[in-house]
C-alpha cells in the first residue's frame, strides 16, 4: 500500500483542530493543495470535530475564491484509521486533481509577474 510521495502528512488529534489559518499557511508556504482527512461523519471521537472541519473547509474555499485560487485545491475526506487503502486512493485522487491544476498560482504568477516587471 503506497500513497504518492509528494504528500506531506501533518498529524493532528482531531481534524477539528485544523483552523482556516492552518490551511492558508500551508498554501502560502508552498503546498499546492491541502486535503483534510478526518473520521467518518458521525463517528468523531470528540463528537463534532469532523463536522466543524467540513464547514470550515467551505469557508476557506470561499476565501480561496476571493484570491482566485482554485477551490479544488482544498478538499476534505472522511476516512477511518482502518481504511488505509481508501486513504491511499484518496491520496492518489487528490494528487491527481492538484497535478492537473498545476502548481498553485501563488508560485507561477509570482514568477511570471516578476518577469513582466
Amino acid at each position: 500500500m503506497q500513497y504518492p510521495s509528494n504528500i506531506r502528512i501533518v498529524k493532528v488529534p482531531c481534524i477539528g483542530t485544523i483552523g482556516a489559518i492552518h490551511i492558508l499557511k500551508a498554501l502560502e508556504n508552498g503546498a499546492d493543495g491541502v486535503c483534510l482527512v478526518g473520521c467518518s461523519e458521525g463517528k468523531c471521537e470528540y463528537s463534532s470535530g469532523n463536522y466543524r472541519a467540513r464547514k470550515r473547509v467551505q469557508y476557506v474555499k470561499n476565501l480561496l475564491g476571493k484570491l482566485s485560487i482554485e477551490k479544488e485545491r482544498l478538499e476534505i475526506y472522511n476516512i477511518s484509521a482502518g481504511e488505509a487503502r481508501k486513504f491511499c486512493e484518496v491520496a492518489r485522487e487528490v494528487t491527481e486533481t492538484v497535478r492537473s491544476l498545476g502548481p498553485i498560482p501563488l508560485k507561477t504568477k509570482a514568477i511570471s509577474n516578476s518577469k513582466e516587471e
Binding site: 488529534p13 490551511i23 499557511k25 500551508a26
Partner: peptide
C-alpha cells in the same frame, strides 16, 4: 499540541 506546532508543520513546505 499547540497551534504553533501545527503551524510550524504547515509552514515547512
Amino acid at each position: 499540541f499547540n497551534n504553533d506546532l501545527i503551524l510550524t508543520e504547515c509552514e515547512a513546505f
